[in-house]
Nucleic acid binder design. Structure first.
Lengths: 161, 161
DNA sequence: CTTGTTATGTAATATCATAACAATTCGCAA
DNA sequence: TTGCGAATTGTTATGATATTACATAACAAG
């Protein structure tokens, strides 16, 4: 399954991972979210792996930690996290990745490298606006959107060049 | 499975359907595509239904017409058509819809109505550019992208209003 | 006609996701 | 504190989507 760094740059992951977990805890307090053990652990798993993981991979790790072994266990936790903006769903990969900017509303764009299966979440500056503009021309009111691009990350461009 | 008009407006579908099929044939001639019976029939099925169809729905209809009964029959034809820009894949719905502007390169945006499950293909003016711009800032080179927005179509906005 | 290539058909299976129900836990009002 | 309703977790079972692997058939070039 594919990797999912914040961006394609190297960075101290254990730090950002911890940061985000703290932000999630804060969010839970301020917004009254119930970040229960399974849910919190699910988020941790995604943060630790720093990858986009399939639901069954998440499930496997949850099971190792003493949680349930059945698909709904993972799907429910993931659904909750997605709903509250702590996790993103990458439809192209049938996978889930921890959000790198929880709390702050954003319209992420995902860049999926076909070379190394890495996924990066980038701020989709202007993308949301363009989509909303296109929507209004046909009278459509947008609730949510997902933008995923496939291509080559910097490292893999080097390799093929 | 969800419907997929060109846009949310009514129109003479048998006309546009025939047009697109002709365009596909022309494309096959000029670009040397092998629009074989299964492939052509698959495109027809999508055009006839004027909807986004799941692979198994397409398969069922192909089987009725004397083609194979196994999933790869449908998946292969669909893959071919997607690859050559005659069909779009709607990841959010695990479904496929005939492209309404084959030949001319475009960056479609799909609007998926949660009220009536209708899907509309709209020109993503400015969207592609915005994504490409976001990509270059992280050094990513985009090959393909899929942009899908969920919300309410004009008709369904009325209903809930 | 033969050879390499592309396309099609089929069986089997892998992967992803949800429905339905039981048991438990939690928040909260009485 | 007790009891109630709602939310959460767990399990069984099944549904839906997609691919691998291999056999056969069509086709184009030499």
């Amino acid at each position: 399954m594919p990797a999912s760094p914040v961006a394609f740059a190297k960075h101290d992951h254990s730090a950002c991972s911890g940061d985000i977990l703290k932000q999630a805890d804060a969010l839970a307090r301020t917004e009254g979210l119930r970040l229960t053990p399974v849910r919190r652990r699910t988020l941790e798993i995604l943060l630790e792996s720093h990858q986009a993981l399939g639901a069954y991979e998440v499930l496997e790790r949850l099971a190792e930690d003493g949680f349930g072994h059945q698909p709904p266990v993972a799907y429910r936790a993931l659904e909750f996290l997605v709903e509250h903006g702590l996790v993103h769903r990458i439809r192209r990969l049938n996978a889930f990745a921890a959000c790198m900017h929880p709390g702050s509303p954003h319209r992420p764009v995902f860049f999926i490298c076909t070379g190394c299966d890495t996924v990066a979440e980038a701020p989709g500056t202007g993308v949301g606006e363009a989509i909303t503009r296109a929507a209004t021309t046909v009278g459509f009111s947008v609730e949510r959107m997902n933008v995923e691009a496939v291509g080559l990350c910097p490292a893999c461009q080097e390799c093929t060049a």
